[in-house]
């Protein structure tokens, strides 16, 4: 299977170049049902190293208003787990290199059936799956089916995670670790500032797993991205991008928005030494 290889080689290359990965998040099917594949290519052109693609869910408990509304709009447009997988499949026709991580909630996967999901996701070219409401304790079945299909189940660590849980999460983690940069929901207004404690947690997870650590939640512009780039191996930008995309009326406009929004962030991250 090529999937885990894709994430691994991506982070290997970044390490060699001493660069931090930029991981933009978009909600599949927003602002338009059929623009996601174009937007994904535009993300890569604008310097994305990995793409996080949100699976819309009706009850996104860990998301702030921006991603909630994007999900509601996408569902209204008929977007579902099936169409999200189709998007990844279509993206892979022209991009074999950039890892794609699906982010979402468990029930849509449960409804499809974990085995079928794992198989379809692998066939579409998905590299990782991040399920917000499925901690390792509840993920045994899904995680092993994904592993068989060559897909990483990305595990989360939060500012509230205890040392004991960090060890539990580290055991058998694959792909990368996602560090939740703030105690809160996505897109929290005040934003997240890096701090010494976060730095320590990120280091601990790196040591325990030997995997790269991405920071996300509340990172919203060049300044905060550069700030977190000093601590983490990857920086995730979600709500700030989704907000801007929401205003776009066409695929072209969305792709332009991606470029103008990500360019200064990419530069700021690359200037971190």
């Amino acid at each position: 299977m090529s999937q885990q290889y894709r994430l691994k080689s991506c982070f290997q290359m970044l390490a060699e170049q001493q660069r931090t990965a930029l991981i933009p998040f978009i909600t599949a099917g927003d602002p338009l049902a059929d623009a996601s594949v174009d937007i994904m290519h535009a993300l890569v052109d604008a310097g994305a190293d990995v793409i996080e693609l949100g699976i819309p869910f009706s009850d996104p408990m860990a998301d702030g208003p921006v991603i909630q509304l994007a999900s509601e709009r996408a569902i209204e447009r008929g977007v579902s787990l099936h169409t999200v997988l189709q998007d990844v499949h279509n993206f892979r026709q022209n991009n074999q290199k950039t890892p794609v991580i699906l982010m979402g909630y468990l029930n849509p996967l449960y409804r499809m059936g974990f085995a079928q999901f794992a198989q379809s996701a692998a066939a579409a070219g998905v590299d990782g799956v991040l399920i917000v409401d499925s901690p390792p304790e509840e993920s045994v079945v899904l995680e092993s089916l994904l592993a068989e299909a060559g897909i990483s189940m990305i595990r989360l660590v939060a500012p509230t995670t205890t040392a004991e849980r960090m060890r539990l999460i580290a055991a058998e983690a694959t792909g990368f670790i996602y560090y939740v940069a703030l105690k809160g929901i996505t897109g929290a207004g005040s934003g997240a500032n890096s701090d010494a404690e976060s730095g320590q947690r990120i280091n601990t997870m790196r040591k325990l797993t030997g995997l790269p650590v991405a920071a996300g939640f509340g990172i919203k512009d060049a300044e905060s991205a550069a700030d977190w780039a000093q601590l983490a191996d990857a920086v995730v930008i979600g709500s700030a991008l989704v907000t801007r995309l929401a205003e776009c009326k066409s695929s072209e406009q969305a792709c332009e928005t991606v470029k103008s929004f990500l360019a200064p962030i990419r530069i700021a991250m690359d200037n971190v030494t």
Binding site: M61, L106, P135, E137, E138, L156, T160, T162
Partner: peptide
Amino acid sequence: ASGHFGEYGGKYVSETLMAALD
């Protein structure tokens, strides 16, 4: 002990809440 009634129940929440639930 893990909060299950047969296959039902459990703790399907984000990592941020796991410590508080514990």
